[in-house]
Computed example of a mutant assay.
Amino acid sequence: MLKELVAKSRSYRRFDEAVKISRQTLVGLVDLARLSPSGANMQPLKFYVSADAEKNESIFPTLGWAGYLKEWAGPEAGERPTGYILVLKDKGIAHVAGIDHGIAAQSIMLGAVEKGLGGCFIGNIDRPRLFQVTGLSPDDYEILLVLALGKPIEQVVVDDINENSDVKYWRDASGVHHVPKRTLQDLVVG
Rank of each mutant, 00 (worst) to 15 (best):
L63C: 13
G64A: 10
G64S: 12
G64K: 12
W65Q: 09
W65N: 08
L69M: 14
K70G: 04
K70M: 09
E71F: 12
W72K: 13
W72G: 13
A73E: 11
P75M: 04
P75F: 04
E76T: 07
A77Y: 01
A77W: 04
G78E: 10
E79Q: 09
P81Q: 07
P81G: 11
T82W: 03
G83M: 02
G83K: 00
G83R: 00
Y84L: 04
Y84I: 07
I85Y: 08
L86A: 14
L88A: 00
L88M: 01
K89C: 05
D90R: 13
K91D: 03
G92N: 05
G92C: 07
I93D: 12
I93R: 15
H95F: 04
H95R: 11
H95S: 10
V96C: 06
V96N: 15
V96M: 11
A97H: 11
A97D: 11
G98F: 14
I99W: 13
I99H: 12
I99E: 09
G102N: 08
G102F: 11
I103L: 12
A104R: 04
A104K: 04
A105Y: 02
Q106W: 02
S107H: 08
S107R: 08
I108V: 12
I108F: 07
M109W: 06
L110N: 07
L110D: 03
A112R: 09
A112P: 05
A112M: 01
A112D: 01
A112W: 08
E114L: 10
G116H: 02
G116P: 09
L117P: 12
G119W: 01
F121I: 14
I122Q: 00
I122M: 03
I122Y: 00
G123Q: 06
N124G: 03
N124C: 06
N124S: 10
I125L: 14
D126G: 05
R127D: 02
R127A: 10
P128R: 15
P128V: 14
R129C: 07
R129Y: 02
L130S: 05
L130I: 03
F131I: 05
F131K: 09
Q132A: 06
Q132N: 04
V133C: 07
T134S: 15
T134P: 15
T134H: 14
T134V: 15
G135C: 03
S137Q: 01
S137H: 03
P138V: 09
D139Y: 02
D139L: 03
D139R: 08
D140G: 02
D140H: 12
Y141K: 14
E142I: 08
E142H: 12
E142R: 15
I143G: 02
L145A: 11
L145Q: 09
V146K: 00
L147R: 01
L147M: 15
A148R: 00
A148P: 00
A148F: 00
